[in-house]
Write a protein that binds this DNA or RNA. Structure first.
Length: 551
RNA sequence: GGCGGCGUAGCUCAGCCGGUAAGAGCGCUCGACUCAUAAUCGAGAGGUCGGCAGUUCAAGUCUGCCCGCCGCUACCA
């Protein structure tokens, strides 16, 4: 299934907001899927560019920083490095993980703004907004609190009442007060640039109806939004912590709305990567070449931004590639509840990273990716996946074959005798496994992909049961050698099939069997394990998880 | 309130445009094996596919209603 021509593949991943730690849900939702997909596409020879970065602007950052008595930058300086440790601990292999705080990003965003302006998609308008005179800040809806006009709840937020669930407008609140200072906010006129998003109803509807192979929940949601009608949106904010406007029409204190700006980070990150490579124009191959593919790995809460707003921004800008696919994941729940730091649901990521090997955790998560539905995950379930599937089926397969090779052939890959039909059938199965896994990953069915790869391991175990090399070793060493030679081929091939998911241990297996060295990704084909090769030491691939230590 | 989704074996889940006698993994039972991290292989038990009604020659698979659960609700990110 390899492409005749290598493709440019942009793997764009949600920008984590630099005001809090990440949890397993983020990993299962976006970061791990993107890494698996990117590794696979590198293996089949495509030119992959996988980028993301910390989203550092916006009001919530400034508010959180204020709460801590920090500057926004100090907050960013805490979380951005923390994110980097996650990637290292989970083997997330970025081409670039940057932030929205770079000069390149600022330049790209301002240029994007000017292009939209030239293309007539932006206009100026004024509105009245609540202003906190104590904090000297305009207040986003959720930072205005007051009494709900519907149910009388006294702590309703300006965007929604937590008590009765109704959507609110801040001006409807009785006795409004600022969440920042507690002061009573006043209405103040403010001028902003607005984005004529309403003009994109037609083109967006047309584009959405042309999509093929997208996940149903993603398309449904986007189509639903467009059917309801897209409204113009403010493009700028009264905020200094952000990318300033490239025009001075509005005076000081205005920034480009953090969300629009963060989306443009997919372009600026590619450019920054290009500059680092010393090929400043290289990014255009991913963004301007119509043959290039672009995948956005996000959680479902980001669907509006990646399946509607960002495509509309791209259309408004012109010349840039629209998304090939937005394989948004649903949520991982913990004991039936959405992970939430504030509500204490789900453990911090570090807790898992301290207790599980990277590949083991990657395995358990990949088998539970919420690709079509919310998926419930518990610590016991993770341990079960590791112990009873990964260790028992794959780890044990490798271990038993290597052990027998050590015992019967001094750890040297034996010379095969004549191959029986059974040998040839199972050897041919290698290609089928690789093809099946390949098809599944191409269509971003990663959960099925790893399940299929594990089937390959089960088939190899069944083969060993049929061939009983431990019995034939007493009577027929040539047959035993043939069986083990076949089994070693199977293992090497299966390590390739599992490599996007389990890069660390798969690399160790391949290396121990003397498979060809590879730089960043192995070739997606069954390697030949050569007779006479001395196997390198390879202890148990995975340690079993002790359930008692997980409490 | 609006929108979207979910409810299939004990558990976690597959089942695209309706059509061979309802699936997988784990757990459980039985058997085989003993090379291997008591790991593997095989066989089996186990489900009125949330409920009611309807469309159809035929419905987990379409329609309506009901019950239960969840998410989103965009000038918050």
């Amino acid at each position: 299934m390899n492409h005749a021509q290598p493709k440019k593949v942009l793997v764009a991943v949600a920008w984590p907001y630099a005001q809090g730690s990440l949890h397993l849900g983020h990993m299962a939702g976006a970061y791990l899927p993107s890494d698996i997909f990117a590794r696979f596409r590198r293996s089949v020879g495509d030119d992959v560019l996988m980028v993301s970065g910390s989203d550092i602007h916006g009001t919530p950052i400034t508010v959180k920083a204020d709460d801590l008595g920090w500057t926004p930058q100090e907050l960013v300086d805490k979380y951005h490095p923390e994110f980097l440790t996650y990637w290292k601990d989970l083997d997330i292999d970025w081409d670039l993980f940057t932030s929205t705080g770079t000069d390149t990003h600022k330049a790209v965003v301002q240029d994007f703004f000017l292009t939209l302006l030239e293309n007539g998609h932006l206009y100026r308008d004024t509105s009245e907004q609540y202003f906190d005179e104590t904090a000297e800040r305009f207040l986003p809806d959720r930072y205005v609190e007051g009494t709900c006009p519907h149910c009388g709840y006294v702590d309703a937020r300006g965007d929604q009442c937590d008590n009765c669930g109704r959507t609110l407008d801040p001006v409807d609140l009785i006795n409004p007060r600022s969440k920042l200072s507690g002061a009573t906010p006043v209405m103040r006129e403010t001028e902003h640039f607005y984005w004529k998003l309403s003009a994109f109803n037609e083109p967006m509807a047309e584009w959405l109806s042309s999509l093929k192979g997208w996940r149903r929940h993603v398309v449904n949601f986007a189509v639903g939004m467009v059917d309801d009608g897209l409204h113009d949106r403010a493009f700028t904010r009264d905020l200094t912590w952000g990318v300033p406007l490239p025009v001075d029409d509005l005076g000081d204190g205005k920034s480009i709305y953090v969300w629009w700006e963060a989306l443009m980070g997919y372009v600026s990150a590619a450019q920054e990567w290009s500059q680092i490579q010393g090929r400043p124009d290289a990014w255009k191959q991913w963004w301007h070449d119509p043959d290039a593919e672009t995948y956005y790995f996000i959680g479902k809460d980001n669907i509006p931004f990646h399946a509607v707003y960002w495509p509309a921004l791209i259309m408004g800008h012109g010349g840039l590639n629209l998304p090939t696919d937005v394989p948004a994941n649903q949520y991982v729940t913990f004991g039936g509840q959405k992970a939430s730091k504030s509500r204490g649901v789900g453990r911090p990521l570090g807790w898992y990273l301290d207790r599980f090997e990277s590949d083991a955790l990657r395995y358990a998560l990949a088998r539970s990716f919420p690709e079509s539905n919310d998926t419930d995950l518990t610590d016991v379930e993770i341990a079960r996946r590791i112990n009873e599937e990964l260790v028992a089926t794959w780890g044990n397969l490798v271990n038993r074959v290597v052990s027998m090779t050590n015992r019967y052939f001094d750890g040297v890959v034996p010379e095969p005798g004549p191959l029986t039909d059974a040998d040839q059938v199972i050897l041919a199965g290698r290609g089928e496994t690789l093809n099946d896994v390949s098809d599944l990953i191409y269509s971003v069915k990663l959960r099925s992909g790893i399940a299929r790869a594990m089937e390959g391991a089960s088939e190899a175990n069944a083969y060993l049961s049929d061939m009983v090399p431990w019995s034939t070793a007493k009577t027929d060493m040539e047959r035993t050698g043939t069986t083990l030679w076949v089994a070693l081929q199977l293992i090497a091939s299966n390590a390739i099939a599992l490599w996007p998911y389990l890069p660390d241990t798969s690399s160790r297996v391949l290396s121990a069997l003397g498979a060809p060295e590879f730089d960043r990704a192995p070739e997606w084909e069954s390697p030949d394990v050569i007779s006479g090769t001395k196997l390198a030491d390879l202890g148990p691939l995975f340690a079993k998880v002790d359930l008692d230590t997980l409490t």
